[in-house]
Simulated assay, not measured.
Amino acid sequence: MKRLAVYCGSATPADPVYIETAREVGRTLAARGIGVVYGGGRLGLMGAVADAALEAGGEVIGVIPEALVGAEVAHRGCTELRVVANMHERKALFTQLSDGFVTIPGGVGTMDELWEAVSWAQLGYHEKPVGLLNAAGFYDHLIAFNRHMIEVGFIRPAHAGIIVHGDTIEGLLDAMAAYQPHETIFRMKAKDL
């Protein structure tokens, strides 16, 4: 994996564990020689990931919609800052530039990015690993809900392993490196759906 898209919040929660998690992700990716592709912001967890990766000598590519550049939240210190017209172009570029996706704690935008990466993998628009860092148990309920969707039958057995999750960034990256692509919906026959 040469580059990973990192999905995370632009907020700064009161509990310092989240900012420290973001910094650890940035440092670890840089130490492993993995470039960061992220939302291009300078605030919250986004800024912490970018700053830590840059301080550790890593590559950081920010992808930000024009509207957010105008709101003065763009991180001007990135290795490269790409300005796009809208969120659709942003997410398409995340997928194009990265070899996988790592989701760390965040809110609604982070969930949108995670589920789109999962949906696109399920369909067959990409075959890249989708990682979920369950820092401080933040995603315990999401992991349980994903398991519930599998058990009920809304996620096919062939797609049950799309989300790769771990409690540490080191362990998650190792699991993502070992990821084996699944059978996509585009390759399935009607009888398998």
Rank of each mutant, 00 (worst) to 15 (best):
I155H: 14
A136F: 08
L142S: 10
I162E: 00
G131N: 00
H159E: 09
I150R: 11
H141A: 15
V130R: 02
I163L: 06
Y139P: 13
A135P: 15
F138I: 03
R147L: 10
G131L: 04
P157H: 07
I143P: 15
P129Q: 14
F145W: 14
G161Y: 03
L133M: 11
I162W: 07
A136M: 06
A158M: 15
F138V: 06
R147S: 14
I162Q: 04
I143K: 11
K128H: 04
H141P: 05
A160F: 04
F145D: 13
Y139G: 13
G153P: 02
A158W: 13
F154Q: 01
I150A: 05
V130D: 04
I150T: 15
F145C: 03
P129F: 09
N146C: 03
I143C: 06
I155R: 13
F154K: 02
A135S: 15
V164S: 08
I150M: 01
R156F: 04
N134P: 15
A158Q: 15
L142M: 12
M149T: 10
L133W: 06
R147P: 14
I150C: 07
F138N: 02
Y139K: 01
N146I: 12
F138H: 12
V130W: 11
V130H: 05
D140I: 13
H159L: 03
I163K: 03
V152K: 04
H148L: 02
I163Y: 12
I150V: 09
L133P: 15
P129T: 14
L142I: 07
H165W: 12
G131T: 00
V164P: 01
M149E: 05
I143R: 12
H159G: 00
A135G: 09
D140M: 05
L142A: 14
I163C: 03
I163D: 11
A144H: 05
R156D: 00
G153K: 11
D140H: 05
V164D: 13
L133G: 06
A160M: 05
G137Q: 11
V164E: 15
K128T: 11
H165N: 10
V130A: 05
M149A: 00
Y139M: 09
A158G: 12
F138G: 12
G153S: 05
Y139Q: 07
R156L: 01
H165R: 04
N146A: 13
I150P: 07
R156V: 02
L132R: 01
I163N: 05
A136D: 11
I155P: 06
A136K: 09
N146H: 13
G137E: 10
M149Q: 13
A135R: 12
I162M: 06
I143Y: 14
